[in-house]
């Protein structure tokens, strides 16, 4: 198939950016979206033009490195990561607009690559259980109810890609935060730090400049792992409890 690609190009974080238009032929529907971009880059290199920079690593939908706003949708039209999106979701003659995640907390580094280190800093401010290596008790000494453990697992499948922030009109990272708070808060091991965790993470989230949550729900619709909005409610509940108890 033949496509018209409108791609955001930006030489560096400080340089101005803009949309460039490319025509690309010979796209097969078996290609993944990123392989389509590989093809474009191979053509650009042959022509002596600098290839389009974009992030990807595992290309099997789990590492969370790939991003891309595709025709106004985070990770494109299917509920999956960009690397798992295939060209059969498009048709011959389509125009595809490709932009980076837009958020001041995710500054553009180059073309479609953004800096998501703010997520690491949110985790640093409480997204863990303090258990020094070697200090752990026997694993089966603390049973965890099966449904709670499954609930925790579902929240823990977050891949930290940032699609929730990109899709949210407020640029909030509440879904990302809520997923971690729910994951750790659902397990018996996570209880001792449950309330200091939520206070620390929310403070860092706000300090970074992420927007507030207005419960619109675009995040969960864009989430390639289907993390539900419940986790944000859980976050709010824990935060409320923490505030009441003066954490």
């Amino acid at each position: 198939m033949n496509l018209t690609l409108k791609i955001w190009r930006q030489a560096s974080s400080s340089a101005p950016g803009g949309i460039h238009t490319y025509q690309l032929g010979g796209v097969s529907e078996d290609m993944s979206f990123l392989e389509m971009l590989d093809l474009l880059n191979e053509e650009l290199v042959t022509k002596g033009e600098e290839p389009v920079a974009f992030d990807s690593d595992c290309r099997e939908g789990i590492c969370g490195m790939c991003s891309l706003m595709i025709n106004g949708q985070a990770h494109g039209p299917e509920v999956t990561t960009t690397c798992q999106l295939h060209m059969r979701s498009f048709k011959d003659g389509d125009t595809i607009t490709i932009e980076p995640w837009r958020a001041s907390t995710f500054p553009v580094i180059k073309d479609l690559i953004v800096d998501r280190s703010a997520f690491d800093r949110i985790i640093q401010s409480g997204g863990y259980i303090s258990a020094n290596t070697g200090s752990a008790p026997e694993a089966n000494s603390v049973p965890a109810p099966r449904d709670k453990a499954m609930h925790a697992f579902n929240a823990a499948t977050c891949i930290g890609c940032g699609a929730c922030v990109a899709a949210c009109p407020n640029g909030s990272a509440s879904l990302f935060m809520g997923a971690k708070i729910t994951h750790l808060g659902d397990l018996p091991q996570g209880q001792p730090e449950r309330y200091s965790r939520v206070v620390g993470m929310v403070a860092q989230h706000d300090h970074e400049g992420f927007g507030g949550c207005t419960n619109i729900g675009e995040c969960t619709a864009a989430c390639p792992k289907g993390i539900p909005l419940d986790v944000i409610s859980q976050l709010n509940k824990d935060l409320r409890t923490a505030m009441v108890h003066g954490f």
């Binding site: 409108k6 706003m69 949708q73 607009t97 837009r102 899709a167 640029g171 675009e218 619709a221 864009a222």
Partner: peptide, 14 residues
């Protein structure tokens, strides 16, 4: 948080 707007943005769920 979003000084640069998207050229194209679709709302899917809201």
């Amino acid at each position: 948080q979003r000084p640069v707007k998207y050229q194209v943005k679709r709302n899917n769920a809201s």
